[in-house]
Amino acid sequence: MNWLEDIGLAVAHFIEEMGRIMVFFIETLLWLFRPPLYLRNIFKQMEEIGVNSVGVVIIMASFTGMVLALQSYTGFKRFNAESLVGTVVALSMTRELGPVLTGLIVAGRAGASMAAELGTMRVTEQIDALATMATNPIKYLAVPRVIAGFIMLPLLTIISNMLGIFGGYLVGVKVLDANPVVYMRRSFDYLEMNDVFSGLFKAAIFGLIIAVISCYKGFYAAGGAEGVGKATTGAVVISMMLILISDYFLTAILF
């Protein structure tokens, strides 16, 4: 019955880890509301997570919008609904693809670098050094990253949405010969503020998930270079899984 034992152990480890992530999250929340606020760190992280991700987000979003226009055109032509391509692109981008793809890309880019940086700080005792200088490491390192993730993900998603719609427009008008005015009108006629806001709300939650998981993984890295590597992989994999899982439930419950 060795395999039963293995499964049991794996489940126990998983539950234990989820519990520790929750404890870490609650600790971070508690420190969030206690002064001082490390503004300099927050801005630095906003740059790291947000500004430095703009390039990849631009490419990701414009090509997603472009391919979405091509694909929906192919499908919709079969029942003469080509005129709805703009609508589909706009709705898919704002409600779903904008926030989720931005979340996944930031998890891969900023989440990985966060976990690697904090993991290295852990194994080289820099996190201990912070504590010995009477500075709480969660307050100094994790809180700014969580705030930055929470703020920057919605902003990146706005860029994503705009470029996605623009990419769809380019393909619709230049490749598929749609009328520019009609395409634009179709894009925005059926788009409600709620579609945009629900997407941005999800993005903020994804930002929170990425920052909390990556910080947690970095903080608990152990065992030198190999440990930092594992922490980084773990941070990206868990963030991505949680983004996809929470995406379903957020969508189902709230909208």
Partner: peptide, 11 residues
């Protein structure tokens, strides 16, 4: 004050 083995300076 503490001096760490690898100095633990903030990179």
């Amino acid at each position: 004050g503490m001096l760490f083995q690898g100095a633990a300076l903030f990179d």
